[in-house]
Amino acid sequence: TTTITTTNEEDARRIATEWKNKGYTVHVEKRGTTFRIEVR
């Protein structure tokens, strides 16, 4: 599992989409101002 964190919502969406397009399972969680993107 790879975890990526960013405070930028646009980055979070872009990163999540990129990983999904590669065939990975992506889970995005917002904690306060931080977005945690888990890639499996």
Rank of each mutant, 00 (worst) to 15 (best):
T1F: 14
G32I: 03
V28L: 07
A12H: 02
R36V: 15
F35P: 01
T6A: 11
V28D: 00
T17W: 12
T33G: 14
K20H: 10
V28K: 01
Y24L: 04
R36G: 03
T34W: 11
G23Q: 02
T2G: 06
T3G: 04
V26H: 00
I37D: 01
R40V: 13
F35V: 06
G32Q: 04
E38K: 08
E9Q: 07
T33S: 13
T6E: 04
T25G: 05
E29R: 08
R13M: 13
E10T: 09
Y24A: 04
R31V: 15
N21F: 06
A12L: 03
V39M: 05
N8F: 05
A16P: 00
V28T: 05
T5D: 07
V26C: 03
F35Q: 03
N8Y: 05
R36F: 15
V26M: 01
K20P: 01
T6I: 07
I15K: 02
W19K: 02
R14N: 07
T1E: 07
V26W: 00
E10L: 09
T34M: 13
T17K: 11
N8M: 05
I37Q: 00
T3D: 04
H27M: 10
T25Q: 12
N8T: 08
T34N: 11
R36T: 14
T17G: 08
Y24W: 05
T6H: 03
T34Y: 13
R40M: 13
E38W: 10
V26D: 00
E38A: 06
G32E: 06
N8K: 06
R13S: 07
T1L: 13
E29L: 08
T17P: 00
T5H: 10
R31D: 15
R14A: 08
E18S: 07
G23F: 02
R40N: 09
V26T: 04
Y24T: 01
N21I: 08
H27S: 12
K30D: 05
I4Y: 14
T17I: 12
T5M: 12
A16C: 11
T33F: 08
E9N: 04
K22T: 03
H27C: 15
T34R: 09
T33Q: 12
N21W: 05
I4T: 03
N21A: 11
T25V: 12
V26Q: 00
R36I: 15
V26L: 02
T17F: 10
T2R: 14
T25S: 11
I15P: 00
R14M: 07
T3F: 14
K20D: 04
E9L: 11
F35C: 03
E9I: 11
F35D: 01
I15W: 06
A12G: 02
E29C: 14
R40S: 15
E38F: 13
W19F: 10
I37E: 01
T17L: 13
R13H: 12
G23I: 01
T1W: 15
T34V: 14
G23Y: 02
R31S: 12
T25E: 13
I37H: 00
T3N: 06
V39T: 03
V28I: 12
T33Y: 08
E9A: 11
T34E: 15
T3A: 06
T1R: 10
Y24M: 04
V28C: 13
R13T: 09
T5Y: 15
R14E: 05
K30Y: 07
V39Y: 03
K22S: 05
T2F: 15
H27A: 08
E29I: 13
K30E: 05
T7Y: 12
A16L: 05
T17A: 13
T34C: 15
R14D: 05
T17Q: 14
K22F: 05
V39N: 01
V39E: 00
W19A: 04
V26G: 00
K20E: 13
T33K: 12
K20S: 11
E29G: 05
T1H: 11
A12S: 04
T2D: 05
E10F: 08
A12F: 04
T5K: 06
I4P: 01
T3P: 04
T25Y: 12
T25L: 12
A12R: 01
T3H: 08
N21C: 10
T33H: 12
T3Q: 06
G32L: 04
T1S: 10
N8H: 06
N8D: 10
R13G: 06
E9K: 08
R40T: 14
R13D: 09
N21K: 11
E18L: 11
E10V: 09
G23P: 00
V39D: 00
K20T: 12
V28W: 07
D11H: 09
Y24F: 11
I37N: 00
R31L: 14
T7G: 08
Y24S: 02
N21P: 00
D11Y: 10
R14K: 09
T25D: 14
R40H: 13
R31E: 13
H27I: 13
E9Y: 13
V28M: 07
V39Q: 01
T7N: 12
Y24N: 02
V39P: 01
V28S: 03
F35A: 02
V26P: 02
T33M: 11
W19S: 02
K22M: 10
R40I: 14
E9R: 08
I15F: 05
T5Q: 07
R31T: 13
I15S: 02
K30T: 06
E9V: 08
R13I: 14
I4N: 02
A16F: 07
V26Y: 01
E10Y: 08
T34A: 09
K20W: 09
N21Y: 06
D11T: 09
T2S: 08
A16M: 08
E38M: 12
T5G: 03
R36P: 01
E9W: 15
D11A: 09
E10D: 11
T25P: 04
G23S: 02
T3S: 07
